[in-house]
């Protein structure tokens, strides 16, 4: 298991490097930058600014310095728009917020989705099952940007129960709506994935053996079917993480939570390349880590992969 982990870790290093290099060139080759405004700056001023941000160096030198700074000091350079802030500052400020509700979403979507899916499969072809499937599909077509306004409309504007936005140190009234808005759609898809996986397992030969051994239904579900049912769910968690990360952009803006997504969009609108680059790389690294974790979870669930 340890050897497998190390091997997978080593395998993801090139992925991260290629990611950094590719995004770096994409940004640098882009026409226009934060200093291209309507009113062209005098050439000497522009040269001055470019020298300050190291933009006058040859491209490979810029890339090399950039890489070294990230690896040695976790330093993504200064923001091009906020004059006195480093990208690392922005990240260290926004990331904890995003991670808090992101992880919560992850947990809620998985726990609720898996429970509903298992329940539906156990009551296959009854009205519970049909309801779960239809609701699952319905939930899937309710993405964050639909759920957000609807939730605010109901709970803030009509009922006045929950604050319409803000973070306030992550107290639970401020967390409820972002988490529901983000997780609804994935609860739907996880329910459906779990259900069909569970149905397949329930039809397997080894469940038949377990029945032939006279085991109780409860022990069949918990001991014999749960782990294999979770396999496809676990491989779906990687994509879910990506969706949650993407969705955080919406949450941060719509609920003004102050997470990373807010900076991402404002950087996109102002062409603040160093912030964009920094956040993209960070998200990439996080995704690689999550994929690694899901692979390990997969190996834990399936002894055939365990090495």
């Amino acid at each position: 298991m340890l050897a497998y982990t190390i091997r997978r870790l080593a395998g993801s290093i090139p992925t991260i490097l290629v990611l950094i290099v590719a995004s770096f060139f994409l940004m640098r080759l882009a026409p226009g930058g934060p200093f291209t405004s309507e009113r062209p700056l005098p050439p000497e001023v522009l040269a001055n600014i470019e020298a300050r941000y190291g933009l006058d160096q040859p491209l490979w030198k810029q890339l090399w310095d950039y890489l070294l700074n990230i690896i040695l000091r976790f330093d993504f350079g200064p923001s091009l728009v906020f004059k006195d802030r480093d990208v690392s500052d922005i990240i260290s400020q926004g990331l904890p917020i995003t991670l808090t509700y992101g992880l919560l979403t992850f947990v809620v979507a998985t726990v609720v989705g898996v429970s509903l899916g298992v329940y539906a499969a156990m009551h296959h072809n009854t009205w519970v099952d049909y309801l779960a499937v239809s609701l699952g599909i319905f939930a899937q077509s309710l993405p964050n940007f639909i759920m957000g306004p609807v939730l605010i409309l109901i709970f803030t504007l009509w009922l006045g129960w929950l604050p319409g936005g803000g973070w306030n140190g992550g107290q639970w009234p401020y967390l409820i709506m972002p988490v529901i808005a983000l997780s609804t759609s994935y609860i739907g898809s996880i329910t459906r994935i779990t259900r069909s996986a569970m149905l397949e397992v329930l039809n397997s030969n080894y469940v038949r053996t377990a029945r032939a051994k006279g085991l109780s239904e409860r022990s069949i579900i918990w001991r014999h079917t749960l782990k294999p049912t979770l396999l496809p769910v676990v491989s779906y968690l990687g994509p879910v993480f990506v969706y949650v990360v993407t969705g955080s952009v919406f949450v941060d803006i719509y609920f003004s939570t102050g997470g990373l997504g807010q900076y991402f969009v404002s950087a996109a609108l102002t062409r603040d390349y160093s912030v964009l680059l920094g956040i993209t790389i960070l998200y990439g690294v996080l995704t690689v880590i999550v994929n690694l974790l899901t692979d390990l979870a997969y190996a834990w669930l399936d002894p055939k992969i365990r090495l």
Binding site: S23, V242, Y283
Partner: peptide
């Protein structure tokens, strides 16, 4: 390409 959130790539 998969390890970057796709929608963010589109935004980029």
């Amino acid at each position: 390409l998969y390890s970057v959130p796709i929608t963010l790539v589109v935004i980029l």
